[in-house]
Design a protein around this nucleic acid. Structure first.
Lengths: 209, 209
DNA sequence: TGTACATCAGTGAACGCGCGTTCACTGATGTAC
DNA sequence: TGTACATCAGTGAACGCGCGTTCACTGATGTAC
């Protein structure tokens, strides 16, 4: 009698040249666990191995250690975030509206992937790939040209402003994630206000003192 | 020969009615470990016990479990944060300047106590006392009256604005903590800009459309 | 003044847990001769 | 066409670790009689 009620089913071994298939399955399982548990620490080598239907040491055939595995998950998700933002503004020409849409996409992505957001943006520096510390991050919104128009200033200032915007967005997203029971207004409403504050606050004063 | 090279020196037993002394020592040790290690997970029952010079079970004489202990540390620090903000604006009458000073104190406290800030503001909801989820938090800056003047609006809107300000501050502080290697401008400079953006952005538009 | 006793502030040893990682191995599959 | 062999994709068992927590205990100190 073959075991009928054995949930930890065993994964079939990959054919000869296709060892890399397991790598993909590992990453997929890690992401699923991360999403389901909403807890980075639940994404253990053993949990992943068991989800994939494989023994723990097999993981080491494809990743040097747990850190590298988590980093790989991060990179994937970061790419998805950038993609989501790009898509949201596709075909829109008005720079201000592009900015609004990209920010909105950032917000939605963060709220829908809280634990990914947490790893990417909120975790201790040593738990995050170094590559996530580059200027690109602040330009996460891809805003530089837009901002340049907005503040009517040089490229240098545009970079500074993009960091300010990032901070504002991040403050909103991360608080919504960390304090889900706090009586915040609906996310979209907050975003509208925040966007207005940024737009008005960054514009040169109307009365040029 | 009494042991000479025994670093894990033993704490003298408290006199009869003074069992609570240990409680204070435990909290102090927990805080010291938290600050030194900059890592919440390093604050283990065993590490604390060893730092105090006592056995692990003794901790349970004063705290039901590890969570409660960490919560106690949180509360202490939250009180210090509020105190720091209150002090910074003491004796200052101009509402806008009060607001600026309190925000600045918030910033400094966060940067000087990154791991405390992390626990209080950035950790998963279930790792934080429920009491940290109340309206008081958003008014962390004690700003409500000030804001009311600023936006020249009702109390309800003032509360909403205080949450916006909190988000902006939090975005700044938490990114500076999480991404220490990111090429941010100096904190004071960022704060000045952010404050200006908020002040201008929240003021009713000069040209009343 | 002397002794039994309750109380209080701890201790010592052990529990079971899940974790990352290592090491020697296995067994199917393709390739070379 | 048949057989030896290298390669590849894994397995099984174990390592040592630090953790939170529990349980039965100890031994000094104050109090009651």
């Amino acid at each position: 009698v073959t075991s009928v009620s054995a949930p930890p089913r065993r994964r079939a071994r990959s054919p000869r040249g296709k060892g890399d298939l397991l790598r993909e399955e590992i990453l997929a399982a890690a992401e699923r666990i991360l999403i389901d548990s909403n807890d980075q620490s639940a994404v253990s080598i053993r949990a992943i191995a068991s989800a994939v239907g494989v023994t723990p040491p097999s993981i080491y055939l494809h990743f040097a250690d747990r850190t590298e595995l988590l980093f790989a998950v991060c990179e994937r998700q970061a790419a998805l975030l950038h993609e989501a933002m790009a898509n949201s503004a596709a075909g829109v020409d008005d720079p201000l509206e592009r900015m609004r849409l990209r920010g909105l996409a950032y917000l939605h992505w963060g709220l829908q992937n809280p634990e990914h957001y947490r790893i990417l943006m909120m975790s201790r520096p040593d738990c995050t790939p170094d590559r996530f510390v580059d200027e690109r991050l602040a330009d996460t919104a891809g805003l530089l040209p837009v901002i340049q128009d907005l503040v009517a200033a040089g490229a240098e200032e545009a970079v500074e402003v993009s960091k300010l915007l990032w901070m504002m967005m991040h403050g909103m997203v991360s608080l919504l994630i960390s304090k889900p029971d706090f009586p915040f207004e609906p996310a979209e409403q907050i975003y509208d206000r925040l966007f207005e504050v940024a737009r008005r606050g960054l514009n040169p004063p109307v009365d040029d003192a």
